[in-house]
Write a protein that binds this DNA or RNA. Structure first.
Lengths: 161, 161
DNA sequence: TCAGTGCGTTCCAAAAAGGAACCTGTCAAC
DNA sequence: GTTGACAGGTTCCTTTTTGGAACGCACTGA
């Protein structure tokens, strides 16, 4: 299977991965959430080659995750900002950060701490059920075929995808 | 920056991405959560080349996300199962699935539906604050340097990483 | 002995990434 | 009016990583 075919799979993981499933793309998005917006800034922070950066930004714009906004005319310059769809990737980022905090913090501890402005406390992200509010775990979830399932899909009895 | 240097960054996103930030790795993990465990099964489902599959499984085992368990002697055969650290990636997977469900479902609707055994309802994953239980959004989060922050880090005033 | 199964490895061509230099507008200073 | 700087790319060439198909090995069972 090639990269371009991924988004045609009847699987939400495959479709999302076709947008963000790349090491540089994930790091670019991390920086976007840290309010980095300009080509030179991404390049300096990431140490990515300019060629690859241009490619990734183009793809993210095309995917509707970033938008290119002119911040100056003559010469015309653009910055890249998260769209609403891009902001919706926040739970993905937080889940990634949290896994790293728990499993890769090293002996010095986690690099950053998060504070929730709403309640004023340090916190960790927790994934809960939208119906009952309890935290979810793989063993407590059943999966059923949805309306967009491939025809004749046998119910996959799985925990996720 | 090369792939191998990523895990030395003082950033939980970079460290996690150095483990799972690859299109095939994410799809392999998706299948792991769907109870796929054997080399042939991954290969048949994913259409990944055997070479790359062997490489990704090796890396995931080395990273402590999967473990190799013998399920038969003579000839010795192994299957790959999620470790506890691997199971902890569940929130990442669910966040990815959910983004795909919302933004890439297409007109037929989402491929799969999730049911929470605990409460018996269909649900979506929601990311909440561990302190107050409210859903979190990028604008409501402040970031502070933690104990593992790089020296002289100016507080990055950012939403995530 | 022969076919089949499970899990890889090897080999080669094609695609993607790394690295450094170069190009294009525009302004401002010398 | 030439030189430099800045922002945002593009070009060119080399090194790595994939894709694809074939092959190897250790068994089993007929």
């Amino acid at each position: 299977m090639r990269w371009r075919e991924l988004d045609r799979e009847a699987c939400s993981v495959a479709r999302t991965v076709s947008v963000i499933g790349d090491r540089w793309t994930l790091l670019v998005l991390r920086d976007c959430f840290m309010r980095v917006r300009r080509f030179e800034a991404f390049q300096a922070r990431l140490g990515i080659t300019r060629h690859v950066l241009a490619d990734r930004l183009r793809k993210l714009v095309k995917a509707g995750v970033l938008s290119k906004v002119a911040y100056q005319q003559r010469p015309r310059r653009y910055e890249y900002r998260l769209t609403d769809a891009g902001l919706d990737l926040y739970p993905v980022m937080m889940a990634i950060v949290h896994w790293g905090d728990v499993h890769r913090a090293g002996r010095r501890g986690r690099p950053l701490l998060h504070e929730h402005k709403g309640c004023g406390h340090r916190f960790d992200p927790v994934t809960v059920c939208s119906a009952c509010g309890e935290p979810i775990s793989p063993r407590e979830v059943h999966v059923h075929a949805g309306p967009g399932a491939p025809r004749q899909a046998r119910a996959p009895r799985s925990a996720v995808a």
